[in-house]
Amino acid sequence: MARKNLIDDAKKLNGVEKAAVVLLALGEDHMQLWQALDEEEIKEISQAMSSLGTVTSNVVEDLLLEFVSSLNNGGMIMGSFEQTQRMLASFLPADKVDALMEEIRGPAGRTMWDKLGNVNEAVLANYLKNEYPQTVAVVLSKVKTDHAARVLAALPEDFALECVQRMLRMEPVQREILDKIEQTLRVEFMSNLARTSKRDSHELMAEIFNNFDRQTESRFITSLEERNRESAERIRALMFVFEDLSKLDPGGVQTLLRAVEKDQLAMALKGASDALRDMFMSNMSERAAKIMRDDMDAMGPVRLKDVDGAQMSMVQVAKDLAAKGEIMLAGQGGDDELIY
C-alpha cells in the first residue's frame, strides 16, 4: 500500500526502494541504467516506485551519495527477495518472515482486490466454489468486471447463478465484514497460493516440455537425466502426453472426438500406437472408423513434425475440456485415471 508519511530516513528503505528512489531522482536523462536490469528487477523496482509516497530531499541526497559510492567500489544498489528475507530475519520471528515473503511473492497488486485480479480465473474459481455464495458475491463485486465474468464462467453453473442472485440483492458491505473477508483471503488463499507457486517449478517445466516437439523433448530429457536424474524423472511424471489419452474411458474418448477436427485426428492417429489408435476407432461408428482409416491411408507418408503438432493439439483440446469442467484430468502423467 502507498506510504502515508514522509520518508525522512534512508535506513527505513530496503534495497529495491533505494534503487527506485535513485532512478526517480536521476530521471529520464539516465534511462540507460534501466537497460542493465532484467525483467524481474524492472518489475520489482516499478512496484516500489508506485508506492513510495513522498521522499525528503535529504534522503534523496543520502541515497545518491550512497549510489555513487557503491559505483566507485564496483558495486550496485539492488534489492532482491533473498536480501529482503535476510533483512526481515534480523528482527522478526521466522514464521512472520515466511508469511511476509509468501505474500510478497504472491500475485502483484497494492490491495487484496488488485492481487485477486492477477490470479488465474480457474484457480480463483476452484477456491471460491467451496465458499458461501454471499462471500463469493462480495469478492466478485470488488474485482474488475471482466475478471469477475471469467471467474463466474469457471464456477459450477448452479452455484454461479446463486452468486449472481446474491450480487443483485447485495447491499453495502460493512467495513468489518470486508476486513474479515480480506483477512481470510490473505491467510487461507494467498499464502497457500504463494507456497504452491514455490513448489511448482517442475510442473512449470513439464508444461514447457509438453510443448516441445518429440525430438527436442527427447534431447532435453536425456541431457537433464545426465545432470539431474531426479528432476528429469519428476518432470517426466508430471508431463501429460498424447499416449496418456489411453486412460480415457469411452465417454471421455467420445467427448474428445466431438471436439477435435477430423483432419487433425487423422494426422494424430497416423503416428499413434496400435493400441491407442484401436481405442479411438472402437469409440467411432463402423462407418466413421472406416472413413478415418481411408483418410489415413490416403495421406501416405507424413512428416513427424506434423504428427507431433496434431498430437499436441489434441492434448491441448483435452486440457481445454478439463478447464471447462467437461472432463477432469487427475494425476497427469501418474497412476491416477481420468475422472468424469
Score class of each variant (00 low, 15 high):
A89S: 15
S70Y: 06
S80P: 03
V59T: 01
V59C: 10
L52F: 05
T56N: 07
L52D: 00
F91T: 13
L88Y: 08
V55M: 07
G74E: 04
E66G: 12
T54I: 07
D62I: 07
Q83A: 13
G53I: 01
L52A: 03
V60T: 04
S90M: 13
Q83T: 05
L64F: 04
N73W: 09
M87V: 01
Q83E: 12
G79M: 00
V68T: 14
L65V: 14
E61F: 14
P93R: 06
L52K: 04
A89F: 10
L64W: 04
Q83N: 13
L92V: 13
Q83M: 15
P93L: 10
F91S: 15
S69D: 14
I77S: 04
A89C: 10
G74F: 06
D95W: 07
M76H: 07
E82V: 08
T84W: 06
A89T: 04
L65M: 13
S80W: 01
T54F: 14
E61V: 09
S90I: 00
S70I: 00
A89D: 08
G79V: 01
M76L: 08
L63V: 00
L64D: 00
D95Y: 14
G74P: 11
G74M: 08
F91A: 13
F81C: 05
L64H: 03
G53N: 08
L92P: 05
A89R: 06
F81G: 07
E82F: 10
D62M: 12
N58R: 03
R86S: 10
S70W: 01
G75I: 01
L88Q: 01
M78G: 12
L63S: 00
V60A: 12
L63K: 01
N72M: 07
D62K: 08
M87E: 09
G79W: 01
G74D: 12
E82H: 09
Q85W: 00
Q85M: 12
L65T: 10
T84R: 07
A94I: 15
M76I: 11
L65F: 11
F67M: 01
V55P: 07
V59H: 04
T56Y: 05
G53V: 02
L88P: 03
Q85C: 08
E61W: 09
V59N: 06
V55F: 06
